[in-house]
């Protein structure tokens, strides 16, 4: 954001000082735990158990990474599945959400409240695990299908309301001018509205994408062991939980696990699953640019 130099007074400087201070503290609070994770993923298990987390790897070791990478096929497959799901899901979901959000904010659209209620209501009442599971597997036959993950995450009522809200900030005159030019509603949406909503679309796209990236729950329900490649976060979730589960419950069976470095392995998996986000986020940030929305009309 470019700021004019005029009008800076003392309060501005104070606010500025406070902002930098708070921003730095916040960032540190978030980055230090991450460094702890990173450092411990490169530590030996014994050291972690002895001294807890340190900011610098204690007793440097890449054992847990080599353990994960021992079967690179799984990891690469997980990345590919996750990336594809994220790309396709975000594109389709964003398109539908944007379209619906725009239509629902049109003050002249008579059914907008009824439709909004219909959509919103679904966020309040959910059928619960079993009915949803039975419908997904037995009515839609989505067991072992990536669609069982792709579809449920496409959108949610909250994103539609958010989109509707963003779309409100586009002056109604734009729609009117489009109508005068003889454009249909869909054409108005794609040609006039979409270009003005870049930050909103980036925001909502980001939310959808995060939903796909972080997904493990539907994977754990619908992708059985017949599916070879499961999404990344699900792999992570498994690694983190399975060791505990093993120790916890199998009261009676002989389960031999050889040398699994429990803690460092969890950390390494977390690093591998989160790392790409750090690379991806700045790319999205580019679209958070002020002024795109309204500049066009007011001139």
């Amino acid at each position: 954001m470019k700021k004019n130099k005029i009008g800076l007074d003392r309060t501005d400087f104070i606010i500025r000082g406070v902002t930098y201070a708070i921003g730095s503290i916040g960032a540190l609070a978030c980055v230090i735990p991450f460094l702890l994770i990173l450092a411990s993923s490169f530590s030996s298990e014994d050291a972690i158990r002895r001294t807890g987390f340190t900011i610098w790897p204690a007793d440097f070791s890449t054992y847990s990474y080599s353990l994960i990478l021992r079967t690179p096929k799984q990891l690469v497959g997980a990345y590919i599945v996750t990336i594809l799901l994220t790309l396709i899901g975000t594109a389709v979901g964003l398109f539908i959400v944007a379209m619906t959000g725009y239509a629902l904010q049109r003050a002249d659209f008579p059914f907008r409240n009824a439709i909004m209620f219909f959509i919103y209501f679904s966020s309040l009442f959910s059928a619960g695990l079993v009915p949803f599971y039975i419908v997904m597997t037995q009515a839609y036959h989505l067991r072992d299908s990536y669609l069982a993950i792709l579809i449920p995450l496409l959108m949610n009522p909250w994103l539609i309301v958010l989109m509707k809200n963003f779309a409100k900030s586009v002056p109604h005159e734009i729609t009117e001018s489009g109508k005068i030019d003889g454009a249909g509603d869909f054409a108005i949406f794609t040609r006039l509205i979409v270009p003005m909503l870049t930050p909103a679309l980036a925001t909502i796209g980001l939310f959808i994408a995060i939903g796909y990236w972080n997904e493990w729950y539907y994977s754990s329900l619908f992708l059985t062991s017949n599916v070879e490649y499961r999404p990344l976060q699900y792999q992570l979730y498994r690694v983190i939980n399975q060791i505990a589960a093993l120790r916890n419950t199998v009261a009676g069976s002989v389960v031999t696990i050889t040398n699994i470095p429990a803690e460092t392995l969890k950390m390494a998996t977390a690093v591998l699953a989160t790392g790409p986000i750090i690379l991806f986020y700045p790319f999205v940030q580019k679209y958070f640019v002020a002024g795109v929305t309204v500049g066009a009309v007011k001139g």
Partner: peptide, 21 residues
């Protein structure tokens, strides 16, 4: 029509399982 995909989505994902409550 623009709202239709979303409506269909919520019907199949949220409303169909609902009687299962």
């Amino acid at each position: 029509l623009m709202c239709l995909p979303a409506i269909i989505f919520f019907i199949f994902m949220s409303y169909v399982p609902l009687p299962g409550m």
